[in-house]
Design a protein around this nucleic acid. Structure first.
Lengths: 360, 360
DNA sequence: ATGAAAGCGCTAACAG
DNA sequence: CTGTTAGCGCTTTCAT
């Protein structure tokens, strides 16, 4: 018999049922010691040969690899992860939305974030695990190297547990005061300012704001940006808030912005799905868009985007995801990124709902 | 000092920098041996006490747990996974769609499948990992206990690798001939029959079919069901196929179904996003819906569902996901489910696009 | 260039 | 009831 037995058959012939304890189960997956035994090297050498550490003769490496291929050896990812203390997985937690905890995929921003984060992570050799928000217990069962917390509520329970476990995570700009924190997000204050300026350029003197009643960072920043703009431009502040969970409440809030003698000449909402609620409210109140009131919203459900002819603020979820994954990956690979706070630009897509056709 | 030091401070006081090799890094996470040392028990006892194996005196268990709590001990999930050979994760792979590999979230069926699978998995203590389709290499880096392959192409490379690794997986009904395979899916043939029967009940004598040119199970089954229905009912077969990737080709295919003297009186498409393509094609060809042609489609993008007034076939993605996770979880927990092939019902939602208002 | 051996942190079998 | 010990499968020194 030659020194290099080839194929799984030869392997089985030479090592018939290598099982130690319970007889009969010859179907156990081959381990690295099987490879080593057949290739007539030690496990250490086999490991080096397979991982290409360079310190093994090319002839023996070839032999070891040949054997590994022949018996279809696959290293145990579990053991390897354990040994290297890396699982190559990152968690992504998205805040609850619309009552149901997983409703968020209906919001284009989060769907895009998830897609892009998954793609970007995989490209770098990480898999993405979808985590529930506010459920730190899950971290006791599963393994992640790092995490991305999208739009955490100010007291998200996950973050504390992650800190305790020493798992690095990226969150939004709400943690910017901590220079060590990893932050990626939009400058929502600037975004709102852009929208308001656009409204004004179209002749609107007053702008109303439809906000969620949540306490996420984007909410507070958007509100702050709005208030600042109003103050600087001598415009009245007109804010309505309602729970994102409750479309009826949202619709009523929209109605409040469309009625009364002092109703604003333009309305913006940070809640994408509320975009068409604004359109419906305008219709209910016999206001023509854009003639009587200008409208815009941040993101919008994917389908029917064009049909709605709605001016939108693109938060560039793909960029956010890419930056977040990049920042996390660098940190996990001990590259100590210098720019740990990253602000992603927003883009205003002007469409019919905010373009004055007749001068007022 | 009492026998039970409380709090991390006491711990650090008593065991100042327990590090063995490199001095100075006192920030290493406490392990089970730290807990054991402080609680004055062996690691085995500590493990039993923490995992509630029942064989330890309640007094000592209390003490051990108290210590663990005090020093904020968290078991290494990596080590535990390694030891128990379980990672509590399942992979979900969804076929590529629309060119971009992650575009599928725009398709409501897949978005719902992902949401529901994630929720169901977490409820059972599993986390869900989003896997790319046709990329078996990823399985060499990450750890999963099982997998769900949604709509695999007939030669999906993932399945072979999963078999090799001994990772159980659920796929669709295309593997029903293997009694050991785990299968969950809709009976697409029956679904198409339902749609055709509905069309006929509304007076349509002929039904056209707009299909993807893919080779997924739902495609072949839908086509087969359609052909069978036509044969049984003496209706002409009129099938157009186009790549889901290519909306232009899809639109052209839709046009072909709307023109000519022998154009069908009703059209169904299995591709949700093509639903409104059918509507547009009808408009282009001056056909009124539903007067001149009846329309229906399987699933539809989430937003604007009501506005489109389109009859849809609900594939009940949530049920599919729940059954798939259930089947997988049972298998992983060695419960050897008897019903390894599970067929999920579909539901026809009749709306305006297929309801004859005037009798023809 | 290669082999031998020491663990990673934890669980589980066995011994007391 | 509790302590001791043997690994899980692999990577990584340290010798040779």
């Amino acid at each position: 018999m030659g020194p290099v037995p080839e194929g799984a058959e030869a392997y089985r012939r030479e090592f018939p049922t290598r099982v130690t304890s319970s007889a009969g189960q010859a179907d156990r997956r081959p381990g690295i010691k099987d490879v080593a035994a057949i290739a007539q090297v030690s496990v250490g050498t086999a490991s080096d040969a397979l991982n290409g550490s360079g310190r093994v003769a090319s002839r023996t490496r070839a032999r070891v690899r040949q054997v590994a291929e022949a018996i279809e050896y696959r290293p145990s990812t579990l053991a390897r992860s354990f040994r290297t203390n890396k699982s190559h997985t990152i968690g992504l937690s998205i805040r609850p939305f619309g009552g149901a905890p997983w409703q968020y995929l209906a919001v284009s921003y989060y769907a895009r974030l998830l897609s892009a984060a998954t793609a970007e992570a995989l490209q770098r050799g990480y898999a993405l695990i979808v985590l529930p928000p506010n459920t730190p217990q899950i971290l006791g069962r599963i393994v992640i190297d790092g995490a991305i917390i999208a739009d955490p509520s100010p007291y998200d329970l996950l973050t504390d547990e992650l800190d305790l476990l020493g798992v690095p995570f990226v969150s939004d700009l709400s943690r910017m005061d901590d220079p060590a924190a990893l932050c990626v997000g939009n400058d929502h204050a600037a975004a709102v300012t852009t929208v308001c300026a656009h409204f004004r350029s179209q002749g609107a003197r007053s702008v109303g704001m439809l906000l969620s009643d949540g306490t996420e960072d984007y909410n507070t920043r958007s509100l702050h940006g709005y208030q600042t703009w109003c103050a600087r431009n001598g415009a009245p502040v007109r804010v309505e808030r309602a729970s994102t969970v409750d479309p009826v409440a949202m619709a009523k809030a929209a109605d409040r912005l469309m009625t009364g003698p002092d109703r604003p000449e333009a309305v913006y909402t940070t809640e994408g799905p509320a975009g068409h609620l604004l359109q419906e409210a305008a219709r209910r109140n016999d206001l023509r868009v854009p003639d009587d009131v200008l409208l815009a919203c941040a993101e919008v459900p994917v389908a029917g985007r064009e049909q709605l002819d709605l001016t939108t603020l693109n938060l560039n979820a793909e960029h956010v995801a890419a930056q977040a994954v990049d920042l996390l990956a660098q940190t996990l690979e001990d590259q100590h990124p210098i720019d740990r706070h990253r602000v992603v630009d927003t883009t205003l897509h002007v469409r019919g709902s905010s373009t004055r056709t007749t001068s007022s």
